[in-house]
């Protein structure tokens, strides 16, 4: 007896995890990039399940749109040699696997033992207005700082990507 939201959760979780695995396991970096978009989309779906529609929109616009496109651009600009073997492991992938797996085991086991008491109050239907209020009210300064950060990052990225004269 599964209700619809539970079914949706399992489906989205499965897509997200599978796509993420594909990102790290595939040998073609273009494929990895495409599966990354899929992962971002899956996460956006999970946000909708969590009644964070605004965040889901942001996720799709920024991640699945901007970031993924940026990555694909970078892949294209730095492409060299065989694209089919463009996303290989380095020399310590085994150790990386062990560490990641160990961390996963700890997280899963720890998570299984945590019992959270859910808040009794039901969530409001839409919280876009609340987010807007928070941004322009309580979090106004961080909001502005984030804007400055984006500006700095943009200038920095342009400078770096344009490249000066090679030092040598």
């Amino acid at each position: 007896m599964l209700d619809v939201s539970a079914l949706l959760f399992w489906l989205l979780a499965a897509i997200t995890i599978a796509a993420a695995l594909a990102v790290v396991l595939l040998k073609n970096i273009v494929h990895s990039a495409l599966y990354l978009v899929l992962t971002f989309a899956g996460v956006a779906g999970i946000y909708i399940l969590l009644q964070a529609e605004f965040l889901a929109a942001v996720q799709l616009l920024i991640y699945a749109g901007a970031v993924a496109i940026l990555i694909v651009f970078a892949v294209m600009l730095t492409r060299r040699g065989d694209i089919k073997a463009s996303n290989l492991y380095n020399f310590n992938y085994l150790a990386a696997g062990v560490v990641s797996l160990a961390l996963l085991v700890i997280i899963i086991l720890g998570n299984g033992r945590m019992a959270w008491t859910a808040a009794p109050a039901p969530a409001p239907a839409s919280n876009v207005a609340a987010i807007a209020n928070a941004f322009l009210g309580r979090y106004a300064i961080p909001f502005e700082v984030a804007a400055v950060l984006l500006l700095v990052a943009m200038v920095g990225a342009i400078l770096l990507a344009r490249g000066g004269k090679p030092e040598r």
Binding site: Y93, L103, L104, I107, I108
Partner: peptide, 14 residues
């Protein structure tokens, strides 16, 4: 957690 560990593996092993 699962997603985090997958990402970690990617960051460390690629």
């Amino acid at each position: 957690g699962l997603l985090f560990c997958i990402g970690l593996f990617g960051a460390l092993a690629k």
